[in-house]
Design a protein around this nucleic acid. Structure first.
Lengths: 225, 225
DNA sequence: ACAAAAGTGTTGCTACTACACCCATGA
DNA sequence: TCATGGGTGTAGTAGCAACACTTTTGT
């Protein structure tokens, strides 16, 4: 019996919705293995990280300049052979954020950083394509019964913005009357006294999400369309 | 920057329903830390395990004699301080099985093995109480939209058996007419030509679960009661 | 006045909840 | 024939899907 001292890494699948498209944040690797290939931001867990999510936050900030966003643990991938360097187990995280809030900046192990549409991903290092697929499944489920969509939006948003997020994530369009009825009826949206004046047409009312009202919903609310 | 070579363990929360009670499989630790305390079956990932679930299966069999059961990854716990030996990250698994199928046998690091009702757990080693709570939440969700309940039953079962599993997991009783209507209407139960003759009263019809029919259900079926 | 997106109601149907009694069997 | 769990039906309600036109604004 030999205790395996596995190397432990964290990788983050960061999603954002940009121009009605669901996108993933990738970095271009500076070093081997998989030098010059696109990969998820992530890296080794260090002694100074006092838990796993801190490690994921640190790597994300170091490699992309994205910080202070919603992160949740996804799944741990540990098959022998997923990393050519030997037994490397990775704890994958899901992040949800708004692209506009961050100026991407490559550094550390990355020679590039970019948002890629989920439907047009490049060839990826390691088993990162599999991890992204897993993350996407999780996001599709989460958006149906949790406030995940609001992590992808500004604090103030129009119902159209919210619907666009849902459509980008689930991958098909939604009847706007039913969509609005369901959200307005749920009580989780606070109607604001402001409108967004975008162009030469009717301005849309702005709303904010109420965490408190969401918590009050009976058991597991359903936002399926 | 120092690469942390974390120790990696796996722990399994095995559930079964016995006499209408949801129970968890625990072992009594033979060695320090937490010597003589109850804990989840589990241990270090070894070089010869070629993926994480294999390690969980191996440890479960070694410590309890339970093998060949449904296992799924739950969550990875990696906070500094969760193990007095230093940085030990554990990948937790959920197992679902029937108690009657296995003769428990303690060995390796365990001086005892037993099923404990979830509502009467002893003091547990490490953060294992937290892990069990997490597993229980997951089970409650899974049973509502997946065939998880059938992993807790024999191949042939009565509708009463199935209802008992649901009641034990969700923690409250269900109207039997509505319960039967929903399951019979769903098409996932194959009616068998057999009955279970238990005692001096009307024998109950036996059913089997049809994986194939379950897969045919539109999107995410709901078995909420 | 026009272009563009915002905003709004109704109807039919399905699926759920609540609820209480008769049936089949073995002893 | 009795004790025990097995098995069944209905009515009211709530929530969902499908569907198209009017309103408001800036230019």
């Amino acid at each position: 019996m030999t205790v395996e001292s596995a190397k432990l890494t964290v990788d983050t699948v960061a999603f954002a919705v940009h121009q009605a498209t669901l996108e993933v944040l990738l970095i271009k690797r500076k070093y081997d293995p998989f030098k010059a290939q696109w990969a998820l931001p992530g890296g080794f867990v260090l002694k100074e990280d006092n838990n796993l999510v801190n490690a994921a936050e640190r790597e994300l900030e170091e490699e992309t300049n994205v910080s202070n966003v919603y992160l949740e643990q996804l799944y741990t991938f540990g098959d022998v052979g997923r990393d050519p360097r030997g037994r490397v187990v990775t704890v994958a995280y899901l992040a949800l954020l708004r692209e506009e809030e961050f100026a991407l900046r490559a550094s550390a192990d990355a020679s590039g950083v970019a948002w890629w549409p989920l439907s047009e991903l490049p060839t990826l290092a390691f088993d990162h394509e599999q991890i992204i697929n897993y993350a996407y499944q999780r996001l599709k489920y989460k958006i149906e019964y949790s406030p995940a969509a609001f992590k992808l939006l500004q604090d103030k948003f129009t119902l159209r913005d919210l619907q666009t997020v849902y459509e980008a994530v689930i991958g098909h369009s939604i009847d706007n009357r039913n969509f609005r009825k369901k959200f307005l009826g749920s009580g989780v949206l606070k109607e604001l006294d402001e409108t967004s004046r975008e162009a030469s047409f009717r301005p849309a009312r702005l709303y904010a999400f109420s965490e408190a009202e969401f918590e009050k919903l009976p058991d597991r609310p359903v936002f399926v369309f």
